[in-house]
């Protein structure tokens, strides 16, 4: 859907460049041309020609043209009712992460899996301050406002991973609030949904399990292990493209680093620094988290 806007952009850019060049050239020519005598009558004619032609007609017609193309284009981007209601996913912004809820109870965070080739409705809102949901390559943005739930319609034409980022300034870690949108072809999407629905884990053995349940689990949910609801759901964290809402690529070992240094990597994020937990235990937890994937 972003394609139409791209087209609009190139057309506008071309037209604007022409106008800019034209006006500048005229202006420079007017300054440098040899002065000549003009009668009052001639002056009045020239004056009218410039002001009516350049000042009224040029911008006036451009505006009508723009509105004629722009308003319908905008209309087509709206979430109007379709014959077959599209998949509706709830996305909620938090300082500074994204909560994603599918209709059948699947919850994930900081990543959004969608089917390619058909429209998807995202019902966006916020739990704290105003955020804005935006995946540049898929379409426009929509603000996520506390107390309101607005609907943004997106469509990925081809499978792939698209990066999104919060577009409304939302506080100290506004820079680290990205979301990875993964578009699958239809069978792959259905497979992901099915696998994700079934996902259940048991806690890691020993000290790590105890620490996770007593501390991490208070805020984080891992299906089958903990039910915390204040922080991102970690049930599939091992399979996510990035950690900390785009702060760190989720390569092997990245979770270890994140658990130790997250307040340095993303200062001010909501997770307390856990310096009192031994590094070994943190590493155990991180290694276990890495295995959480559908």
């Amino acid at each position: 859907m972003a394609r139409e806007v791209t087209l609009l952009w190139w057309a506008m850019l071309g037209f604007a460049s022409l106008v800019l060049l034209g006006v500048t050239a005229l202006w420079l020519y007017a300054m440098h041309r040899a002065p000549r005598e003009t009668s009052a009558e001639q002056a009045r004619r020239i004056n009218r020609r410039w002001i009516v032609g350049g000042g009224l007609l040029l911008p006036g017609l451009s505006i009508l043209l723009l509105l004629a193309f722009g308003i319908p284009a905008g209309h087509r981007l709206l979430p109007l009712p379709l014959a077959e209601p599209p998949l509706r996913i709830e996305v909620t912004g938090h300082q500074w992460w994204w909560e994603v809820r599918y209709p059948d109870g699947v919850v994930t965070a900081n990543q959004l899996h969608i089917p390619a080739g058909r429209p998807v409705d995202l019902a966006v809102s916020s739990a704290d301050v105003i955020h804005s949901f935006w995946v540049p390559r898929l379409g426009g943005k929509l603000d996520m406002i506390p107390g309101r739930r607005h609907v943004l319609r997106l469509q990925a034409d081809r499978p792939g991973t698209y990066r999104g980022q919060c577009a409304e300034f939302c506080g100290s870690q506004h820079a680290h609030m990205a979301i990875d949108v993964v578009a699958h072809d239809e069978p792959a999407f259905q497979a992901w949904m099915a696998a994700r629905r079934e996902l259940r884990f048991s806690p890691p053995p020993g000290e790590a399990g105890a620490v996770f349940e007593q501390r991490c689990g208070r805020c984080h949910r891992v299906a089958g292990v903990s039910e915390g609801g204040r922080a991102p759901d970690l049930t599939d964290v091992g399979s996510r493209p990035s950690l900390g809402a785009g702060t760190l690529d989720n390569r092997p070992g990245a979770l270890r680093r994140w658990l130790r240094e997250h307040q340095r990597l993303k200062p001010g994020n909501g997770m307390p620094a856990h310096d009192d937990v031994t590094p070994e235990t943190l590493d155990r937890i991180a290694d276990w988290l890495e295995t959480l994937a559908p």
Partner: peptide, 11 residues
Amino acid sequence: AVPLLRLPPCV
């Protein structure tokens, strides 16, 4: 007022 000729009001 021109958009009144094109658009439904409340979406």
